[in-house]
Design a protein around this nucleic acid. Structure first.
Lengths: 110, 110
DNA sequence: TTTTATAATCGTAATATTACGATAAGAAAG
DNA sequence: CTTTCTTATCGTAATATTACGATTATAAAA
C-alpha cells in the first residue's frame, strides 16, 4: 500500500529508518558528500556537480532537510546549505549502536 | 520516474545507498534487531514478533536478503535467517566513514 | 522599474514500495 | 499417500519516489 504502519514500531526504529531513508538514494549520498567536503557552508552550486536537473536536486535537498540532516539558510539570493550537526551526530550514534550490536554467532549459524 | 540514474553515481555511493535503503523501513530495522539479539540463527517466528502479515514480513526479508545484509538457509521445513557478517561489517564501515567525515564548521556556518 | 540569477514549487509521467489475502511449493509427520 | 506446517510467491490496491520541464517567487543588479 505504500504506507507504513508507523504506530506499530518503536520510536527508535522509526527514527533510524527515517535517517536511513535519507541516505537511501545515491544522489542524496553524493549531495551529503559535497556538503561534507566543504566543511563550511556552501551555496547551491550542488546542481552543477550532479548529473540531475535543478528541480530534481532541489527535491532531494528537501528530503534531506525533512529528515533533519541538513539545513538551508537564505543568504542573499542564494541559499546556503550545510549539515545539521546535531541530527548528523544523532544519526551517527543510532547507526553505530545498531551496527555495533552484532557479534558473530557460533557454529550453529548459517 | 521512480527510477534512478545509477550510471551517474560512484560505486561507493550506490552501495551505501543500497544498504541504507535496506534500513529505510522500521519493519526492517525491527527484523534486524531481532536477528541481532539472538546471536544464533532463528527461524520465521519473526512474524509473531511483528504486527505484520506473514507475506509482508517475507517481502521485507527478501529485501534484506537482496541488499545482502542477511542470508537464509533452509533447515528442514523452516528457514533459518541470520545476519551476513561480511556485508554487515561492510555496511558498518561505509556508514562509519561517511559519518566520520564530518567536522563541525566554523563561524561562517548556518 | 526592469532585468537577471537562484532556488522552490507545480504538474505530470513512469516506476517502486508497502501491505494483505490467497495460493503454491516444500518437507516433515501421520 | 495425505495431512500439516512453514515460507515464498502471485495478484492487487493504495501510496510514495524519482525525474524533468515549466512556472513562480525572491532578491540582487542594472
Amino acid at each position: 500500500m505504500g504506507i507504513t504502519k508507523t504506530e506499530a514500531f518503536t520510536e527508535a526504529d522509526i527514527t533510524l529508518a527515517t535517517y536511513a531513508k535519507a541516505l537511501a538514494h545515491p544522489a542524496r549520498v553524493a549531495i551529503l558528500r559535497i556538503l561534507l567536503v566543504r566543511s563550511s557552508c556552501i551555496c547551491g552550486d550542488i546542481v552543477e556537480e550532479l548529473p540531475l536537473s535543478q528541480s530534481t536536486v532541489s527535491q532531494h535537498l528537501k528530503e534531506l532537510k525533512e529528515a533533519g540532516l541538513i539545513k538551508g539558510d537564505i543568504d542573499g539570493k542564494k541559499v546556503c546549505y550545510c549539515i545539521d550537526e546535531k541530527a548528523w551526530k544523532h544519526a551517527q550514534l543510532l547507526m553505530q549502536q545498531m551496527f555495533a550490536t552484532y557479534t558473530s554467532c557460533g557454529t550453529n549459524c548459517c
